[in-house]
Amino acid sequence: MARDDYLVMRDLIDQQIVTADNRSVARVADVEAAWQEDGRLVLIGLCVGPQALARRVSGRLGPIARFLLREKFEHVIPMEEITGVSLDLRLRQNAVHFSVGQADDWVVNHILRFIPGNGRQ
């Protein structure tokens, strides 16, 4: 692997996540990693959600956000779903396949549906 192919945190954290059907779903808030048996640290997934963002702002804010939101809006996207890292992080599948991709549907089906002319199919 050439030196340029190594990802650095700057290429992941805060990057735009785009699904296969070109929906912008979120930006990376945090990463999830695990120690392997052989001592290597391996990235497992990308975290998105308000609690992960709250932890970024302040360590003390993390528990408060957790108490209020109770993991309801947190999502982890497994690393194997990512196909490319260029300007954006491209995902292998369409938005409906990801829990975070359904956030938009929730807003449409619970809030915008009451307003005429919303373009909902």
Binding site: S24, A26, R27, D104, V107, I111, I115, N118, G119
Partner: peptide
């Protein structure tokens, strides 16, 4: 844009719901 959501006026509200919200 800062939170990474779809935005823009060329889409119907249902195509960029969080932006319109």
């Amino acid at each position: 844009q800062g939170l990474g959501w779809d935005w823009g006026l060329d889409e119907r509200p249902a195509q960029a719901p969080r932006f319109y919200l």
